[in-house]
Design a protein around this nucleic acid. Sequence first.
DNA 1: GTTGAACCATTGGATGTCCTAGTATATTGC
DNA 2: GCAATATACTAGGACATCCAATGGTTCAAC
Lengths: 169, 169
Amino acid sequence: MGTPLSRDPIADARRNWEEHGWADVAASMAAITAIMRTQQILLARIELTLKPFGLTFARYELLALLSFARNGSLPMKKASTLLQVHPTSITNAVDRLQDAGLVRRSPHPTDGRTTLVELTAEGRTLAKRSTAALNTGVFSDPGFEPDDIDQLIRILRDFRRNAGDFLGS
Amino acid sequence: MGTPLSRDPIADARRNWEEHGWADVAASMAAITAIMRTQQILLARIELTLKPFGLTFARYELLALLSFARNGSLPMKKASTLLQVHPTSITNAVDRLQDAGLVRRSPHPTDGRTTLVELTAEGRTLAKRSTAALNTGVFSDPGFEPDDIDQLIRILRDFRRNAGDFLGS
DNA sequence: GTTGAACCATTGGATGTCCTAGTATATTGC
DNA sequence: GCAATATACTAGGACATCCAATGGTTCAAC
């Protein structure tokens, strides 16, 4: 982006919190704000990598999910649940992927309420190629130390479980 | 926010990566995906807490930033830099905060290119009240262990520095 | 001084997310 | 079997974010 700041803005915010009598929650505020900013940086990198494929991250996630499904197809609701986004976000993504010829809708064989989303041949190819691009362009050098990656995975798994994302021990 | 899944979807994705020959980047993929999901959960909590005040997180951040500024005013560009968002996002936020009577625009005394944003009395009051709500409603019980919060702050600070957010040792 | 490069804010366009209905189909209870 | 409830998808609206382009203003080089 722009020129680097001379100081960490989140550390400054934490100082402000401490100086205003909120020292007890200052660290928590700093951690949460840092997660927000980190997500923003990572999303920008991912979107940049996916741009040549005409994909956004939202559409890529759906494509990747379908590529791992049994027949390359899933009910819309199932995709919404697994990707943990609002059903309307899936409708939106499927609309655009369908326009691009990467997926197609089909009725569920036994449940008239349900619509299946299915990868087309082009969709499967693009899923492979874009995943390869993300692996080499983003995931292979994420900017975290290996030990820190393990820490992150553990800390965020605990958080997500406590938040009710999934059951577990 | 529906029913919890029976399995961690990110752990499943990691397994898929490993089974497709991308084991070397699977952990990194899992960590990044977990950050995305964690951000989503936290943002939802924050927005829920801010809703009674008629604020979104984007507008709250600007309000809070102004409340810590010397005269309660900053150049738009400065706000954009400190909050690390695109200038147009600031324009958008200021438009809405101004409509709500919480901030006001004024010309810069010496630089004709620059516009200052300034907190109104109502804006300052709302900043205080909404910050108190976030402190008690979100930051006081973030869902991380205290030790993990310190780990997060360190890991994400290193990441942001490496990403060019700010200079530092 | 003039002129051209750099900088600031805004507008318009594309996306994505969520929420609130509204429509259609399933399932459950009596 | 029929009514009441639950579930699945879609349509429309509110917001936020980014990018590209536009109109002003400032600054620096000559």
